[in-house]
């Protein structure tokens, strides 16, 4: 048996991982989530703002991280929409433009009474600008030096939401969804920390430990990886039960099924690997 495992073709492991993720997805298994304090800090930051507050939604991710971050971005969009916030979309990633479109789609399809046909008065899409942290430096000091027009080429001075906006220090909250560089860390370094802009972020599992030390002094809250997204969705559903019937509002919750099985598989693999290692050591293969 151990001999077989020792020389196991790695494609069998790939196959097991595929099954571990695919089966729970097809079955659509979900589990109840209890939002943690950290997630509730994010929820409260959005929810405690008066209706119709100004929120910058910086979506700094690409299709490669969509599997992990789209549920968060969608949940942010839904929560802000329920609160009827005015939303300024922007991205530091060239591929982020389509990610913004996904969020705008949610606003228009699910909350048409607030957002349909309200471009410029309830939401605006600033699109992408090159320069990574250089863009953050400008938007926190002088927005129109970086964004003279929105994504459609409309002059920001002709858009009601941006007409009197000098920089994003004037907004009530910055929501950032980030897949890496440039992203959450840069927003904290150049935005939220030096200028005290209230900021919440949703980030990938890789970034989560890196962002932890900023909480709570330099960052209000963080949604860490898909678990954070699922808890945030649950927090929104708890507060606004009408979302219970919206399957799209449970994207993160549905993904927790595959996470459970795949995590268990991974732990079993680590365990088996170590059993083989200690067996080999006993045989004198590792000196």
């Amino acid at each position: 048996m151990l001999d077989f495992l020792q020389h196991l073709d790695r494609r069998w492991i790939f196959f097991l991982m595929f099954i571990a993720v695919a089966v729970p997805l097809i079955m659509g298994t979900t589990f109840p989530e209890v939002p943690s304090d950290q997630v509730m800090a994010v929820f409260d930051a959005v929810d405690n703002l008066p209706d119709g507050s100004n929120v910058v939604m910086a979506l700094d991710y690409d299709p490669a991280s969509q599997g992990e971050l789209q549920p968060m971005a969608s949940a942010f969009a839904r929560h802000c929409a329920i609160k009827k916030h005015n939303i300024y979309f922007m991205t530091l990633w060239p591929q982020g433009i389509s990610m913004i479109q996904n969020s705008i789609g949610i606003l228009q399809d699910e909350y048409p009474e607030t957002y349909k046909g309200k471009y410029g008065t309830k939401y605006v899409n600033l699109g992408f600008r090159a320069g990574n942290e250089g863009v953050i430096k400008l938007v926190v000091e002088d927005l129109k030096k970086s964004y003279s027009t929105d994504i459609h080429g409309t002059n920001l001075d002709n858009i009601p939401l941006t007409k009197n906006l000098k920089n994003i220090q004037q907004v009530d909250l910055l929501c950032n969804v980030s897949a890496g560089y440039p992203g959450s860390q840069e927003w904290v370094l150049y935005g939220s920390s030096p200028f005290d802009i209230p900021t919440v972020v949703g980030c990938t599992g890789v970034q989560a430990p890196i962002m932890l030390p900023y909480i709570p002094d330099q960052l209000t809250g963080m949604l860490a990886a898909i678990k954070g997204a699922a808890e945030y969705e649950q927090a929104i559903i708890n507060a606004y039960p009408e979302l219970e019937n919206n399957p799209n509002a449970k994207e993160g919750l549905v993904r927790m099924g595959p996470q459970l099985v795949a995590h268990l598989l991974l732990i079993s693999l680590i365990f088996l690997g170590n059993v083989i290692y200690f067996w080999e050591r006993k045989q004198g293969l590792h000196q």
Partner: peptide
């Protein structure tokens, strides 16, 4: 957390 992230990416694709 990295493992968690990678698996989420695979779920997204599936």
């Amino acid at each position: 957390y990295t493992v968690m992230g990678r698996i989420a990416l695979l779920s997204g694709r599936l």
